[in-house]
Amino acid sequence: MAFLIRQTLIYAIPLMIVALAGIFSERSGTINLALEGIMIFGAFCGVVFVRGMQNLGWFAQAKADGNWMALQGYLLLAMLGAAILGAIFSLLLGFAAIKLKADQTIGGTALNMLAPAIVLFLIRLTAKQNTLLLVSGDSASWFLIKKTMLGFDKNQDIGVLGEAFLNKVYLTTYVCIIVFVILSVLLYRTKFGLRLRACGENPQAADSLGINVFKMRYAGVLISGALAGMGGFVFSVTTANCSSNGDVAGFGFLALAVMIFGNWKPLNVAGGALLFGLFKCIAACYSTLDVNGDGIYTLANIGINSNVYRLLPYLITLLVLMFTSKKSRAPKAEGIPYDKGMR
């Protein structure tokens, strides 16, 4: 059970944070189809940062000192780097969509094509292969928090929830949850959030009240880019062993679907992300899934082809969207470039 919760969170957290990225952009009025591309770019940048710090010998030093706090600090630093560079990358979309009033779907698609191309170009050029790996060790050995680090004894029983949330977890999970809560509050309980949402609903009205629509939309896209970049790196650390290969397995698109499923509202999105995270988790590790702890792998014994499990998250997304699409309500001005002269 603890294993199931842990694994579900690993898949749900990137989805959740990237779906929030989509919310920020779309609530300010810009369709962000480029989430996938920004994730890929963010993952690459984060991995490059980690490699840089490894090359400087910081990691080995911290490990030798037994200073796992420092390692977590370096992880945070890399997350920050990925977020900043993700934001810069998303400016390409912002510039096209807001300043030049270009088609946002095409702009996003272009970024989705550009990110893997440029990332793979650079990786192949430097690493002579298609995957950029860590210099040494794997992401679990550097970043995984075990219960012994938190002062528990190795054989101490800390309960199912303790096992799920305190043993063998990544700091990224908690950072993402905190960021998610803070930004949700920002979106719904502050002046800035209200203004941002106004620009996605009725920019003309917002403008008439003295809000700078362009600035607000840029802010939305930048926050979106930062979150998606960070989400990409989190995905890479927790599921891809901190490597980058120009691919995030369609998580950016899945996050878009989660966002629509969650009706552009953070709380619903968090729920949706958990649901899809669960199915993704089942798809990834159904064969070693032992729900009630009796040593029997129930799902593996049913004998359903593994491809069915892999197919499920997407099929369920589609089915859920079928039932919710009638009720879904996108931000009204989403996708329409702001034109001062238009009524």
């Binding site: 550009l114 893997p116 191309a117 793979l120 170009f121």
Partner: peptide, 18 residues
């Protein structure tokens, strides 16, 4: 390597947005 041509294609798509 061949990925530079993908970059070129992506830039062309980006440009065709405007």
């Amino acid at each position: 390597n061949e990925y530079i041509t993908d970059v070129i294609i992506a830039v062309i798509v980006y440009m065709s947005a405007f």
